[in-house]
Amino acid sequence: MFSPHGPSLHELCVQALSSVERGYDLLAPKFDHTPFRTPEGVLDAAVEVLADLGPFDRGLDVCCGTGAGVLVLDALCRGRITGVDFSAGMLDQARSDHPDTTWVRADARALPFAEAFDLAVTFGALGHFLPAERPAIFEGVYRALRPGGLFAFPVDAVPPVTSRWYWATLGFDLTMRVRNAVWRPPFVMYYRTNRLPAVHADLTAAGFTATAVALTAPGRYGDGSPRWQLVLARKQADAR
């Protein structure tokens, strides 16, 4: 599906009936040929915004997958870049594509870092966590950043009710909830659980000062509103 190099319908069905970790282990070799990978336009727009907020030394890609976020960090960071993910398959693919990056297998809800990075990013990963799990992720990123460090990630702007994307994401999330109610292990992937007000509240509770800027270049909805916003969460410069 998606392209001659992408996964087949059968492969996607096997993934969808697996756990998140096992599903991404299976999908890893073909993941970059699916629409699930963060679009290049979003990555480029993030670089454009973040370039004015540096300089940055060491960078961290949280839930790195095959390494799309590393492309952003490569463009912005002068020091060592680290990617962390819990899927061994995704890390194997990332290691093959980006051999100069440090790759760490770990759970994003228990990051094993302390004041080691100046910039942390994550792309397309928050939908794989339930809202109750976000605080642990944000607290771990906060610990991983040096004082004054920045955590950045895109979120979907709320689509207008007249948009096809509004109804597509609603239908997808409802389907996933039914799937997880009747099938084990669960496969957590939701589009509508990371709205900006809730994300902002969790970031504030973790200690960040958070804002968001619209990313207009990657596209707009039919009513002219941007499809993406980039969250910018800053750790206090004097945080100890």
Rank of each mutant, 00 (worst) to 15 (best):
M1S: 14
E11Y: 07
C13S: 12
C13V: 09
L17I: 06
S18Y: 05
S18W: 04
S19P: 05
V20I: 08
L26P: 03
L26Q: 15
L27W: 04
A28H: 05
A28R: 02
P29C: 10
K30D: 08
H33D: 13
T34I: 04
F36C: 02
A45D: 00
A45F: 01
A46H: 00
L53E: 14
G54W: 07
V70K: 00
L71Q: 11
L73A: 04
V84W: 02
A88P: 05
G89K: 04
A94G: 15
D97V: 06
H98K: 08
P99E: 06
V104T: 13
A106L: 12
D107T: 11
R109M: 13
A110G: 12
F113H: 04
F117E: 01
A120L: 06
F129I: 02
E133P: 07
I137W: 01
R143K: 14
A144C: 14
L145K: 02
L150E: 02
P154M: 03
D156Y: 07
T162S: 15
R164Q: 14
W167E: 08
L170S: 04
F172M: 04
D173R: 06
D173H: 09
L174T: 09
T175Q: 10
Y190I: 06
R195E: 15
V199T: 03
V199A: 02
A201Y: 03
T204K: 12
F208K: 07
F208N: 09
T211H: 09
T216A: 15
P218E: 11
R220T: 15
G224M: 14
P226T: 15
P226I: 15
V231I: 15
Q236W: 08
Q236F: 06
Q236R: 11
A237N: 06
A239K: 02
R240I: 03
